[in-house]
């Protein structure tokens, strides 16, 4: 988009701004309270629970500590901790990308799960909820958790070519 306006046109408008500090949107305001900031529909939150759980289980399946995964995937350990424990937290796109690479799952699906892109796929949300309900964040993967995790990885991979590392 290109603008063809004179210098005077822009100057007049800039001066008319007066002493206003212009801003809009929650992000511009203050990211303060995580629970209030979440105005998204319920499915996003549900899928985010699954996202945190998914990262937690995948990490444990690989026998990694948070620190070790952070190191291997080149992401912040503090962010990983929040991802696993705080369902309101929306991770950065780069982090999701790195984790998708790390665990060899489709990036686009993981983005949906993390709430970064709209999940236009009701099936995925449903599967995510089912997965979250079947797994629990305990120290060792139970056989049931392991099975739930495998099934969910398969769902994530459906209809999308797997990323090659």
């Amino acid at each position: 988009m290109r603008f063809e306006r004179s210098k005077e046109w822009w100057v007049k408008r800039a001066i008319a701004e007066g002493n206003a500090t212009i801003g809009a949107g929650l992000l511009a305001r203050d990211p303060a309270s995580e629970s209030e900031i979440d105005d998204q529909a319920a499915p996003r939150e549900e899928s985010r629970i699954a996202f945190g759980r998914f990262i937690n289980l995948m990490r444990r399946r690989h026998g990694m500590s948070i620190e070790k995964l952070a190191d291997a995937a080149k992401v912040d350990a503090s962010e990983l901790l929040v991802i696993e424990e705080d369902v309101h937290y929306v991770p950065g796109p780069r982090t999701v990308y790195q984790l998708a690479r790390m665990f060899d799952v489709p990036q686009a699906r993981l983005m949906q799960l993390a709430g970064l892109t709209a999940a236009n796929d009701a099936g995925l949300v449903e599967e995510a909820v089912r997965f979250a309900a079947r797994s629990e964040a305990v120290h060792k993967l139970s056989p049931e958790e392991s099975a739930a995790l495998s099934a969910f990885v398969a769902v994530l991979g459906q209809g999308e070519p797997k990323r090659s590392l």
Binding site: D30, P31, A32, S78, E79, V82, Y89, V90, G92, L116
Partner: peptide
């Protein structure tokens, strides 16, 4: 101003998302 009880982690993540 505006109850600036910043949570930089949240704000950073939000801003990083602008690329998309």
């Amino acid at each position: 101003p505006q109850s600036w009880h910043w949570d930089w982690r949240q704000k950073r993540a939000g801003v990083a998302g602008l690329l998309a």
